[in-house]
Amino acid sequence: MEGILLHILGAIATFLLAFFVGMTYGGIRRKVIARVQNRYGPPIYQNFIDAFKLFSKTTAVHHGAMHLLGPAFLIVSAVMALMVVPVLRDNLWFTNLNFHGDLIFLIYIMVFGPLGMALGAGQTGNPNSAIGVTRGLSQMVGFEIPWVMALVAIMIKYNTTSIVDLMNIQNEVGQWLIFQNPFAFIAAILASLGMFRYAPFNIVGAPTELASGPASENGGKFLFTMMSAGSVFAFVKLTLFVDIFLGGASNLIVLVIKTFLLYMIPVLYGVVNPRYRTEQAVTYFWGWPLLFGFLAIIYSVYF
């Protein structure tokens, strides 16, 4: 009985941590962008104020059941992915639903949210939403291939599909996977540029071009849900990268340092880049990232 209670409390604590860290990272990102553009920038807690304001707005419009379900799909998939990814190594509070094959489950669940959002955006009838959805799915075709190849390379090398096993292997060997198979890390990190959808890959929600794409008919509480889901999902992706490639984290400070350094890669890459067109974004992932994906598999099989 106590075990179940601890699991439930741990799940709530994990969610609150992911929400807080994801939102703060979003605020830091806005600050970084402002400093690069020679501005002072909003305070780091600006995202919390925005979220609170969005939650306090009224919502007097809806376009049907699927439109209401779209943001719900997003946050459900983000929380499901969060529950599978182990936040800390050997910790009672941040337990997770660890099972063999959770890496494969994660590949599926990470695209579940955007697909649900696509259905929701379709029902609003806004042409900008429809264009945003087609762009998002095309981009997904691009970055999923190097991402899956990087993961398959790791699975071949260590004969396991469990994230906890991968963390344990790295600690037994005493060497992080980023050094054991650097090509897999490069392919995965290049794919993550598309996953985060920051510039130059922000073709889905391009604010000046598509009026924020799938989100264009969603205001107030819908936008709050999407913002929370985005923050939690960013935390999930960063923690997954730390778990797989950087040997996991033994306490929260190490986790924050590692995730923050990883988070700066897509942020700083995006600050200095304009937006790609759709076909440029897709062909980007079929170039160097795909090559590194092949190299990673060859390296895993023969070395």
Binding site: R30, A34, Q37, N38, R39, Y40, G41, P42, P43, Q46, I49, D50, K53, K57, V61, P207, A211, S212, A215, S216, E217, N218, G219, G220, L223
Partner: peptide
């Protein structure tokens, strides 16, 4: 933009009427 920087006051552009205040 950078000279007057309204974003430090929390003022930010919204894309559509649904999202705007």
């Amino acid at each position: 933009t950078s000279r007057y920087d309204a974003e430090r006051l929390g003022v930010r552009g919204a894309a559509t009427p649904r999202q705007a205040d």
